[in-house]
Every structure is written in C-alpha cells, then in structure tokens.
C-alpha cells in the first residue's frame, strides 16, 4: 500500500515540493514536528483524485471559453480563458504539495493530524474525547480507491479529518480509534 509509514524526515527526492517534511526543516517549521512522532502520509492517490476534479471543473470551462473566443473572434475573451488556465495550473501545482503535507500519527493516547503548507495546522485529538468516527467515500474517491476518516469530538472546532486513506487502512483506523476511544472513554 502506498501508506507505508514514513519517518519524520521522509526521503523526498524533490526538495521544492516538500517544504515541511524534508531534512531541510527550518526552525520555523519545528513546532509542527513534535519529537518522537512517526507520521503516516496519506495516499498519493488523493492528489490524483483532486487533480481529476480540477480537470473536470476547469477543463470544460476552458474549452467553452476558447470556443467562444474562436467563434466570435473577440480577442478580449482570451483574457478570462488565460486566467482560468492559470488558476487550474496553480491548483495542479498546489494539490500534490498539499497532499504530501497531510499526515497523521497515532500516539498512545491521542491522534495527531497535520495539514497545510502556507497555512499549517496540527490537531491533537485524545482518544477518550472522540464522540464518533465517520468513514466516507464519494464517487471519485471510490474510483481512486481512497476514503476519508473524520473524527468528531463534542467540539465542532475539532477539524480532524484524514482524507485519502486506502479503504482497508480507513477501516483499520476506524476500528482502532473506536476501540481506543472505548478504552479511554470519558464524559464531557
């Protein structure tokens, strides 16, 4: 499976695309690298799924705009076409990096979820605080063989969702979280 555990410093061949996780971690990214934590990256197929979504949304738009521009001969119509193409390209560059930045780690008493490059966030969810766990997979996600696991505590601010897990891993994580949550169950 593509979710083999990686260490805190995964061997990333491409330095440009791994701002947060390479050995070249700067001081500033240190807060997001707690000591002794083994991060598990999410499946790269999530990037493929998201890129497909981008292609499906922007592709027809570009085609329609280009067709209009050709048909009417209005040269200004190429401006929005170019903008849309640039947006799509930007998304295409960003998505794989974002997906690489997403990771989770199971510790003895809590689950860590990390995401984001520009705006980073790290969430610590104690197992005993979990109210329920959602596993969901949309039509695209199923096609790419991924599912997402979302943890819910009594706080709506807990945004601990892990997208892009292989279904088997998602099921394992769900059962693991449920059993650990039960063992450490606390009230509110």
């Amino acid at each position: 499976m593509s979710t083999e555990p990686t260490t805190a410093r995964p061997p990333e061949p491409d330095p440009a695309s791994s701002a947060g996780t390479t050995a070249a971690t700067t001081n500033a990214s240190l807060p997001f690298e707690p000591a002794g934590v083994t991060w598990t990256a999410v499946s790269p197929r999530l990037a493929a799924a998201r890129l497909t979504t981008i292609a499906l949304v922007f592709g027809p738009l570009v085609l329609v705009l280009a067709a209009l521009a050709l048909a009417t001969g209005a040269s200004w119509l190429w401006v929005p076409t170019g903008v849309v193409v640039l947006l799509a390209l930007w998304g295409a560059v960003l998505v794989p990096r974002q997906v690489r930045a997403m990771a989770y780690a199971e510790r003895a008493d809590d689950l860590l979820v990390r995401r984001g490059i520009l705006f980073r966030s790290l969430v610590v969810v104690p197992y005993g605080r979990m109210q329920y766990v959602d596993v969901s997979a949309g039509p695209f996600a199923r096609r790419f063989g991924i599912a997402s696991v979302q943890l819910h505590t009594a706080s709506p601010a807990t945004t601990a969702s892990i997208d892009g897990l292989p279904p088997a891993e998602a099921a394992r994580l769900r059962d693991r979280l449920a059993s650990r949550g039960e063992a450490r169950l606390a009230g509110l």
Partner: peptide, 10 residues
C-alpha cells in the same frame, strides 16, 4: 479540553 490545535500562517 476536547482537543487541541496549533495553527501557523505564512
């Protein structure tokens, strides 16, 4: 405490 988080902008 329900859960904890840390955030960082550019």
């Amino acid at each position: 405490t329900q859960s904890l988080g840390m955030e960082q902008g550019p």
